[in-house]
């Protein structure tokens, strides 16, 4: 969980108050991920419950309450930094499913569906790029965050490109006289059997 570990990371620099944590989090992530106070406190409570942080002064519950990281917390942070994110199981990607479904629905131009999504994604990337362009160049954290977002969207655009290329080739092969079996036309292709792994994450 990102917020959880981000807070741990902030506390590893030294004891901080809850409000301070929220401000610093937003500053560090280039204010891309807004965080409400409630989110901060529930996360801190859970961390405290797990023994990763301890409150400096358990007397009052409020914005002035300070937190500090425990040894277990530091260990947890160190482990988390080195644990690769779970990329092995495919995410439940709505777009993939939409394209797959579009293949099966009669009267729908898959290319058009793909283009609609592509345009949307590129427009989104334009907005991110505009953000990056307007930001001061030394704002490293912000640039990294925007880059991550751009690369993420870019990967989806690339998938769309690849999908389109694959579809085109499939249709060319289907049109070719020696390969006109119904089984190979895209509309007749069965949905890939991703089974239960589709949608396991999150």
């Amino acid at each position: 969980m990102t917020v959880r570990h981000a807070l741990l990371a902030l506390l590893s620099e030294g004891p901080k108050y809850g409000l301070q944590l929220r401000q610093e989090f937003e500053a560090r992530t280039g204010e891309v991920w807004p965080l409400n106070v409630g989110q901060v406190y529930t996360t801190l409570q859970r961390l405290e419950r797990d023994g990763f942080v301890e409150s400096e002064d358990s007397a009052e519950d409020g914005p002035q309450r300070g937190f500090r990281i425990t040894r277990d917390g530091e260990k947890e942070l160190a482990e988390w930094l080195r644990t690769p994110p779970d990329l092995s199981s495919p995410p439940r990607d709505e777009l993939v499913i939409k394209v797959l479904v579009a293949l099966r629905v009669p009267g729908v131009d898959v290319h058009e569906v793909i283009q609609v999504h592509r345009r949307y994604l590129v427009e989104l990337m334009q907005q991110w790029t505009r953000l990056k362009e307007d930001a001061a160049e030394h704002d490293l954290g912000f640039a990294l965050v925007v880059d991550a977002e751009l690369f993420r969207i870019d990967s989806v655009v690339r998938w769309l490109d690849a999908a389109e290329g694959r579809l085109k080739r499939a249709s060319v092969e289907a049109d070719a006289p020696e390969a006109t079996t119904d089984a190979q036309s895209p509309a007749a292709m069965p949905l890939p059997r991703l089974g239960r792994r589709v949608g396991v994450r999150r």
Binding site: R119, Q126, W128, T129, L150, I153, R158
Partner: peptide
């Protein structure tokens, strides 16, 4: 797409035709 996103407007070309633009 990352380079294209620097543009004010993105025109999509397919098979020699302009199919779409942002």
């Amino acid at each position: 797409a990352q380079l294209a996103s620097w543009a004010d407007r993105v025109v999509f070309l397919r098979d020699g035709r302009v199919v779409d633009q942002t």
